[in-house]
């Protein structure tokens, strides 16, 4: 209940700041960034799995927000609208990111499955990846690496649902999916993660 109240407060404050920015107060946009940067950045990071990419992507999101705010329908939910922009920006990046990330990955597992195909989970070898110091962080890292292997839509849906805790309905609004598509996409993503993380966590 308290969490809902906080969400509503953020929503109301966002609307006020957005209106103020549109009325010409540029400082309101700074406050809007401060209010949402954590949310936007985390979604970018969890969807892209790379800190620097997430940094660029999250910046792009706020640039787009500043440009599109005049088209925002104030009857709708600001956070959902912000998530939609974030998700679309991430989706565009994932496509161009795959090649770049492939060049800097190392294998952590050479286990072979029954068909003798390499059954590997690849970990990105990046200086900004949260350091694997504790067991929890190690699991976080393994999950993140598994998420990174999912197709873009599955990745975004599972991040929105299982990391960001969004409802099916809201995910549908953010992704532009019917409820059935949200369910099936999430189901495939979870099944894939189960396979990838079997015996590792």
């Amino acid at each position: 209940m308290q969490k809902q109240d906080t969400k509503d407060d953020i929503e109301l404050e966002s609307i006020d700041l957005a209106k103020s920015f549109l009325a010409g107060d540029r400082r309101s946009f700074d406050r809007l960034i401060m209010l949402h940067k954590r949310l936007v950045f985390n979604l970018c990071y969890r969807s892209l799995g790379d800190y620097d990419e997430a940094d660029d992507c999250a910046q792009d999101v706020f640039i787009k927000v500043s440009r599109s705010l005049k088209d925002f329908r104030f009857g709708s939910r600001f956070t959902t609208w912000l998530y939609r922009i974030t998700v679309n920006t991430c989706k565009n990046r994932i496509g161009s990111l795959e090649y770049r990330l492939r060049s800097r990955t190392v294998r952590i597992d050479t286990e072979r499955d029954m068909d003798d195909k390499p059954k590997v989970l690849e970990i990105e070898n990046h200086r900004h990846t949260p350091v694997v110091e504790f067991a929890k962080k190690e699991i976080d890292h393994l999950i993140q690496c598994a998420v990174n292997t999912l197709p873009a839509k599955q990745r975004l849906v599972v991040v929105l649902r299982d990391i960001e805790g969004r409802s099916y309905k809201e995910i549908g609004e953010i992704m532009g999916f019917e409820l059935g598509t949200v369910k099936s996409t999430l189901s495939r993503a979870r099944e894939q993660l189960r396979e990838l993380l079997k015996g590792k966590i």
Partner: peptide
């Protein structure tokens, strides 16, 4: 897996994030 994902650390933007966005704006 879902429990772990729910509890994953929230990664925040770097300290100079606002300055970078403001400069681009």
């Amino acid at each position: 897996i879902i429990k772990h994902m729910n509890e994953m650390e929230t990664i925040d933007a770097p300290a100079e994030f606002l300055e970078k966005v403001t400069a681009r704006l």
